[in-house]
Amino acid sequence: MGNFVLGKYIPLNSPVHRLDPRAKIIAMLAFLIAVFIPAGWIGYAVLFVIAAGTILLSRLSFGFIWKSMKPMIVMMIFLFLMNCLMIRTGEVLVTLGKFSVYTGAVAQTLYIVVRLLLMIMITTCLTATTKPLDMTLGIEDLLMPASKIGVPAHEIAMLISIALRFIPDLIEETMRIMKAQESRGVDMKEGRFSEKIAAILSLIVPLFVSAFQRADDLANAMEARGYAPGEKRTRYKVLHMRAADWLTVVGANAVLAGVIVLARILP
């Protein structure tokens, strides 16, 4: 569990790390929309080059991206099998007994895999280069226009930042409880079914107890420092958009526009 890297912040000093979180979020959204526009393989090639370039620029290793991909592999295999059974377009590629695999199925699956790959690459770029707190500041700012129509922008941002804040703590807590129960003879990996149930219970019950306890403590600590939701407040950290940030936003939207045009002119 300590090796779980999806969504983890990696403290490095790179041009991507220094970008304004708002610019990064907008750019990522534009890129994600672009991924879902069917602009053929040329479009995907362009997007791939941009995503890979961003990764290089942010000094992340491709091994790290690969680690983030790993949890998705099972899903991809499942998708591939489903597609093979369902899609019957194009020519027959291989025949296995009653089933035939069509070129259409392979092409369709490859499209999905490439889309997933691109999505993971670019979202990892965002989460690995942006501190969780900066991310929530960015989300809050971007939601501000919506607060005029009653969307609780600050509360949503606070909720996200608290949730993100607790993920490492809860992972650590889980490890701690696992170790404590392993010391009491619990075998988390092997054992009969009934033993496994007991093992999981011995982990989940304390985890819930401690999560509620933490939530309670945090709520009290926030109230003690005068936090009241819905109040107007100033910020310790004020975000500023610089030239590089505007360039990122404009660039990402230009790519999106380019992909849309490409999709139109393709046959």
Partner: peptide, 17 residues
């Protein structure tokens, strides 16, 4: 081994379930 070497962690009360 774990039965022979009993390890009590810091703040062990969180192991109660």
């Amino acid at each position: 081994l774990r039965g022979e070497v009993g390890l009590i962690f810091q703040f062990p009360e969180y192991q109660l379930f």
